[in-house]
Amino acid sequence: SEEELEEFAKEVLRRGITIIVNGIRITEVEIFVKVLREILEKR
């Protein structure tokens, strides 16, 4: 749901943790923004 997305976004921003994806360091915020864009483009 959109509320869950908002909560996830807030949690990500609070933690600001960097994770490893395919050997490249990407912040969770960047991943969230990318996923959010993909979701919005599909609408």
Rank of each mutant, 00 (worst) to 15 (best):
A9Q: 01
E30G: 06
K34G: 06
I31R: 04
I17F: 06
I20L: 06
V35S: 02
R14C: 10
E6C: 15
F8V: 03
G23F: 10
E7Y: 09
R14W: 08
E2Q: 13
V29I: 12
S1E: 07
V21L: 14
G23R: 05
E2M: 14
T18Y: 03
E6M: 14
N22K: 09
E4Q: 12
I31T: 07
E41G: 12
F8Y: 11
E2L: 15
R15H: 08
G23V: 09
V21G: 04
R43Y: 14
K42E: 10
I17R: 04
E41A: 11
G16S: 09
R43I: 15
T27E: 06
E3S: 13
K34P: 01
K34T: 06
R37Y: 04
K42P: 06
T27L: 10
L5E: 02
L40H: 05
R15A: 10
E11L: 00
V12T: 07
I19C: 02
N22I: 08
E41C: 15
N22R: 10
I19G: 00
F8N: 01
I24G: 03
I19S: 03
F8L: 10
I26W: 05
E28F: 07
T18V: 15
I39Y: 12
E11G: 05
E41I: 10
I24L: 12
N22W: 04
G23Q: 07
V29R: 01
G16R: 05
R15Y: 07
E4P: 07
T27W: 10
K34Q: 11
E38I: 04
L5P: 00
I26Y: 04
I31Y: 09
E3M: 12
K10G: 03
R25M: 11
S1N: 11
I26R: 02
V29D: 02
R15W: 08
T27C: 13
K42C: 12
E11D: 10
R37Q: 09
G23N: 08
E2F: 15
V35I: 15
E41T: 06
V33Y: 00
F8D: 02
I26V: 09
T18P: 14
I19H: 00
F8W: 15
F32K: 02
E4A: 14
E2N: 13
I20Y: 02
I19Y: 00
A9R: 01
K10Q: 03
R37T: 09
F32I: 11
E7A: 13
V29F: 10
G23T: 05
R37G: 05
I31K: 07
E4M: 13
K34W: 04
E28H: 08
I20H: 07
V35L: 13
R37E: 04
L36I: 09
K10D: 04
K34N: 09
E3V: 10
L36M: 09
V33N: 01
E3N: 14
A9T: 03
V12R: 00
T27V: 11
E38F: 10
E11R: 06
F32C: 05
E28S: 15
R43F: 14
K10I: 04
L40Q: 04
R37V: 10
T18K: 13
E38A: 04
R25S: 10
E6H: 11
T27A: 07
V12I: 14
E7S: 09
E4D: 12
E4F: 14
V12N: 01
L13D: 00
I39E: 06
I19Q: 00
V29G: 02
T18C: 12
G16V: 14
V12M: 14
S1W: 15
V35K: 04
R14V: 06
G23M: 11
G16I: 15
R15V: 10
T18S: 11
F32L: 15
L5A: 01
L40D: 01
L5Q: 02
